[in-house]
Design a protein around this nucleic acid. Structure first.
Length: 137
DNA sequence: GCCAACGTTGGC
DNA sequence: GCCAACGTTGGC
């Protein structure tokens, strides 16, 4: 199966990359946006996921992967919302800040730049690889 | 703290 | 079904 690529966004005050590393994985729940939910549903096991911290950090912090495909969100009172399981793979050697992403013309079309409010978004393999390259010291 | 962008809600 | 009002998110 073709591996797909994603980026998830989180406020570090709520659940940071550091928390994620400490936990060794988490249930990615609480998403209440249809577009984001549809992206969660499209995730397959072992898909690669970039973990972005919004707020003060505003940077891509690490690489994760899908450990469990979409299942009903246990934190939702209403049916229809889903969670996925994510586990950390490794921190990025150097964080990739939003400013750096915005300064890269080849990344001008990605959802992180174009739709800052979307919390779960797909990335092309090329864009994903480019962000990882920007994280190389 | 402010504002822009976007989604959702509710009146008509 | 349209659109104004409102709430939320996130960058600055």
């Amino acid at each position: 199966m073709k591996t797909r690529h994603w980026l998830v966004k989180q406020e570090p005050e709520g659940y940071s990359w550091k928390d994620f590393l400490r936990d060794g994985g988490t249930s990615w729940d609480g998403v209440r946006n249809y577009q984001a939910r549809n992206n969660l549903k499209a995730m397959a096991k072992d898909d690669k996921v970039l973990f972005y911290e919004s707020g003060d950090a505003k940077s891509v912090a690490g690489l994760a992967k899908v450990s469990k495909e979409a299942y009903p969100d246990p934190t939702s009172e209403e049916p229809g919302w889903v969670s996925v399981g994510l586990v950390p793979v490794r921190p990025l050697p150097v964080r990739v800040s939003l400013a750096i992403v915005k300064a890269e013309p080849r990344l001008a079309e990605i959802a992180l730049v174009r739709n800052s409010r979307l919390s779960v978004m797909p990335l092309s393999g090329a864009d994903f690889a480019l962000i990882l390259k920007l994280a190389t010291p």
